[in-house]
């Protein structure tokens, strides 16, 4: 079996909002079976970078390379989903007043002749949830009644509900979660990685990053300032790149 070295490669991605240069130069390689953490201070451009990959925003420039080495263009959420990229946004992922099963499939329900295949949907949602968490989450429950960790599990199971997804993007998946709940989500992330998916995770928690990540990319002021391997770095080194104490010579510091 030939597994590609790199699923996606994003190079020199740029994005401005009006006069705000949110992202000046963002690059990342997404490898199958690896968890790649993106770290950086508030406003460093991490979420913006993730949104470009997810198709939620259209980039101003940059190169996007797909699994077979050919160039791709992601300009809408559909583009990303069709390329096998699933995205989990913190806080804005779920539709209230909708059930667990409905949220797992939100907008992508299995259907025949325009009619939703409810039974198939519920069965597949249950299977997907079991891949993500050992806890029982009733698929008929309204997501409004779930805890933060359970809600995150529902969003995560979107990545495994069909076999076409090879990459999952996570924006601060453990933010606002308690210790127990974070643990469940981190377990799920490891599970996704171990199935061979490429995982990209933004996090402010270095403890969590060092727990699950294999690769670490540091963003600062809209640029990548460091690419590190977890096995060969320390939290202190990562912090020094985040704060700009290290690697400042490589970038033009603007004040």
């Amino acid at each position: 079996m030939k597994i590609p070295e790199v699923l996606f490669s994003f190079r020199n991605m740029r994005k401005s909002f009006g006069s705000v240069e949110a992202l000046r130069d963002g690059s990342i390689d997404i490898r199958p079976g690896y968890c790649h953490a993106i770290v950086g201070d508030n406003g460093a451009g991490k979420s913006t970078f993730l949104k470009l990959i997810a198709g939620a925003e259209v980039p101003d420039g940059g190169t996007e390379i797909g699994p077979n080495g050919q160039e791709v263009r992601i300009t809408s959420p559909q583009d990303a989903m069709e390329l096998g990229i699933a995205t989990v946004y913190q806080n804005l992922a779920l539709a209230e007043n909708r059930s667990v099963a409905e949220n797992v499939f939100l907008g992508n329900e299995p259907r025949r002749f325009g009619m939703i295949r409810r039974r198939e949907m519920e069965e597949r949602a249950a299977v997907a949830l079991r891949k993500i968490t050992t806890r029982d989450i009733p698929i008929g429950a309204l997501v409004s009644n779930l805890s933060g960790g359970q809600r995150q599990a529902v969003a995560l199971s979107r990545a495994v509900v069909d076999e076409t997804k090879t990459v999952v993007l996570l924006d601060e998946p453990t933010a606002a979660l308690g210790i127990q709940e974070s643990r469940h989500v981190l377990d799920a992330i490891r599970g996704l990685r171990d199935t061979g998916m490429g995982v990209v995770m933004i996090s402010h928690s270095l403890a969590h990053v060092f727990e699950v990540a294999d690769d670490i990319t540091v963003f600062r002021a809209g640029r990548v300032t460091a690419f590190l391997q977890r096995a060969e770095t320390t939290p202190d080194e990562v912090v020094s790149y985040i704060t700009g104490l290290a690697g400042a010579g490589d970038t033009e510091e603007d004040s």
């Binding site: 959420p77 989903m81 804005l92 939100l106 992508n108």
Partner: peptide, 10 residues
Amino acid sequence: GNRLASRLRG
């Protein structure tokens, strides 16, 4: 239920 989440799901 959530307009933004819906848009982000295509």
